[in-house]
């Protein structure tokens, strides 16, 4: 297929969605209020759905064809291509919400660019994902504002979350996604995140230079050990 988006890009997007969705799903039943439990699970369902659509595409395009589950459950940690931010543990609710803001602000321009891509199957997935990402962005934005402009404790927690997640933003912004313009995406991301921080009366720190990426991915290794455990105990099973 001449216009096909390269597999490595599809996997970067799929794996980022899948691991982020996994982290969000860890909150299900443990959220700070029932309404938030339900909202966070909505985001988890959206991004896991996006991951599935992309993995199905990758699986169908491989020769010989494989399956979404083979890709999700039987690739080893070093074969995953997600941005590091997606795999980090949840931390507290401030950190979970901040991650959602940072990732949704990154995904919106990605999906909006891919919506127009000549790879029609990717464009269809992106069109749907763009709508979902805009809703996720609004939800995360509103909570970041409440935390920054809420109580002393919530402010201290969102500031700590910024400190914890900011080092991963350089890699996020540096990630190449074929079919999109990286500098334009970076500018869009900075505008959206800075606007949220401004409304939250928080300082928008400078995104530092890209350090040597953390190649160990210990968090991803632990996440996958859990996610893949049952499937790998029964490699021949159909579920």
């Amino acid at each position: 297929m001449p216009n096909a988006l390269p597999e490595k890009t599809l996997l970067t997007l799929a794996d980022t969605c899948l691991l982020w969705g996994h982290r969000l799903s860890e909150w299900c039943g443990h959220g700070p209020a029932l309404e938030e439990d339900i909202a966070l699970t909505n985001t988890a369902l959206d991004v896991i759905g996006q991951a599935r659509a992309l993995l199905q595409l990758v699986a169908a395009r491989r020769t010989p064809a494989t399956t979404e589950d083979a890709l999700a459950y039987f690739r080893d940690s070093h074969e995953f291509r997600n941005v590091t931010l997606a795999e980090l543990p949840n931390g507290d609710y401030a950190q979970t919400i901040l991650r959602s803001l940072l990732l949704a602000a990154w995904f919106v321009p990605v999906w909006e660019a891919l919506e127009k891509h000549a790879d029609r199957q990717v464009a269809a997935i992106a069109a749907n994902a763009a709508k979902e990402a805009r809703m996720q962005l609004r939800h995360a934005h509103d909570w970041v504002v409440r935390f920054g402009d809420g109580t002393p404790e919530s402010r201290q927690r969102i500031e700590a979350a910024i400190g914890a997640l900011w080092p991963s933003c350089a890699e996020l912004l540096d990630t190449e996604i074929d079919g999109t313009a990286r500098d334009a995406r970076r500018a869009a991301w900075s505008n959206v995140v800075a606007a949220a921080f401004d409304e939250a009366t928080l300082t928008f720190p400078v995104v530092g230079a890209l350090h040597e990426p953390n190649s160990a991915h210990a968090d991803r290794f632990a996440l996958l050990a859990e996610m893949q455990s049952l499937a790998r105990q029964h490699p021949d099973a159909v579920w």
């Binding site: 700070p32 609710y93 404790e153």
Partner: peptide
Amino acid sequence: KGRWVREA
């Protein structure tokens, strides 16, 4: 654990 979230 969610108390501070609701308070905020």
